[in-house]
Design a protein around this nucleic acid. Sequence first.
RNA 1: GCGCUCAUAGCUCAGCUGGAUAGAGUGUUUGGCUACGAACCAAAAGGUCGCAGGUUCGAGUCCUGCUGGGCGCACCA
Length: 575
Amino acid sequence: MRFIETIRENIRSRLVQALTLAKDKGELSFSEVPNFNIEIPREKEHGDFAANTAMVMAKEARMAPRKIAEIILSNLDTTGSYIAAAEVAGAGFINFFLNTDWLYQVPGAIHKMGAGYGHVDLGQGEKVQVEFVSANPTGLLHMGNARGGAIGDSLANLLKAAGYQVEKEFYINDAGNQIILLGKSLDARFCQLLGIDTVFPEDGYHGNDITATAKHYIDEYGDALINKPAPEREAELCDYALKEKLASIKEVMGLYGVNFDVWYSERTLHDSGKVRAAVDYLLEKGYAYEKDGAVLLKAERGSDSNEKKPEKGEHVNLEDKDDVLVRANGIPTYFAADIAYHRDKFQRGFDRVINIWGADHHGHVARMKRAVSLFGYDPDKLTVILMQLVRLMRDGEVVKMSKRTGEYVTLEELIDDVGYDAARYFFVMRNPDSAMDFDLNLAKSKTSDNPVFYVQYAHARICSILRQAQAKGFVLPDFAKVDYSVLVKAEELALIHKLAELPEEIASAAESLEPHRLCPYLHDLASAFHSFYRQCRVVDGEEPLRNARLGLAKATAIAIANGLGILGVNAPEEM
RNA sequence: GCGCUCAUAGCUCAGCUGGAUAGAGUGUUUGGCUACGAACCAAAAGGUCGCAGGUUCGAGUCCUGCUGGGCGCACCA
């Protein structure tokens, strides 16, 4: 039930009606009804809604906006609507003031819908895939994964609430050079643990977790593997590590409240021939060509050769460069696998594919979209949300994080330090576009500065109030059927109004793929409740008012729980 | 050098497709618990929205240039 949207559309159609009437009477001249906005003004004195109709048509109508607004108003029929007054204001706005009748349906409706309140049908069952985290199984989960996990999971929840059919996917990078390197690193640790002096690979993974994995293997299978040739040892250890790493990633993601629907292995892309098939397709279509045994994807501008191999660090314009799909040694690149992966996503029937990537991959976006279009899919159906990197701060200094050096704070440690709810809320509340600093000292201090507590506190308070009411022997009525029109104080009406906005907040956040927009809303909602609570006695008082206020409080708890639920944050009954 | 991105209160950040007097939190100052949870409420102070142009009825928001951060430019992933 979109209360506000319904009223907005009602006002819109009445305005259009007024315009047409004015045109028929010859008071206004225009060819087509203009595209105008009806927005909710920031200032209360400007009414509940404001239309810019007169301003946008001033030029064509060759008339002052205020004059046009006057004409529209004189033709406006407000009978049978919630409109109590309408007036011309400012540069030519038409401001609408509603009577409060519409508010009284809201709390009852919320009780009727319960956990479904706030949900809208924007997506109409459209199939969407959200792929996120997709952390390399060569190390532990870090802050970047934490940010991606919070954003991705909330986005998936948000889209579900907005009527989309959503699948959450984790892409397992279990192939390629890094996996070979993982094997070498493991083998070196394995040998070292068995007392054999071994040189650790220069670019190897230095993390303690790699040593731990090697040790686990020895604990489980002994040292027999040492007699096998190195490549065999590396492969065996690598398989073992992948299994262990993946189990650990799943476990920590679970602790973080993120449960993926699909874990998609890069290896299966290669083994099933999908990578080869994608490359062959591009060759057949003439989008790619062979050179010295390698396969290259032609650059967008159509250059068909790469005479000069760019050296590392040399500055090359990406658009002019042909991308390598298969190396001269016959091994496909990450890019080729990723192309095949995205082709596969669309072949699986998703109407829309959303990826959440770290900003360090932004150079990859344009060519991936192009690749999608080469396979005949609409590149606009692929959306890549880039999130800027997380900088970890300790004692005012940046903590360098690197899998290479093995020095980083893990997601698991973070959850231990700051708690599940704070971690989730902290990461999702920020716009992905901006780089964020995560202050470890602040996080570890466990102060209640975190805004998530403010919202949760409101929920816990309401639960407490309801417990109080029952303890005092009041029988709670069916809140869906209570008469809420006894609520007339400003704080009560403001709270109901805020409650009515939830569906719009979900709709607009889903439309722009920005779950973080729910955070300021939830804060405002909690604030409206706290003000109401300060001003109005809830539990005592006379029967009709008491039930209405209890129902209003409970409706607020429902809305908060639904909103927090989308963000993956708990709504505690006590805290 | 080319490209992406960011710049809003002392600090951390919102600001929805351009709308009227730019908002929260935190910090500072000041009031409020012998009534339902003070992890709360009420109020004050705090701004040339990085700089300069442009587009129009109207710009924090769109365009151009500049300054300053972050990131990317491999037969790595």
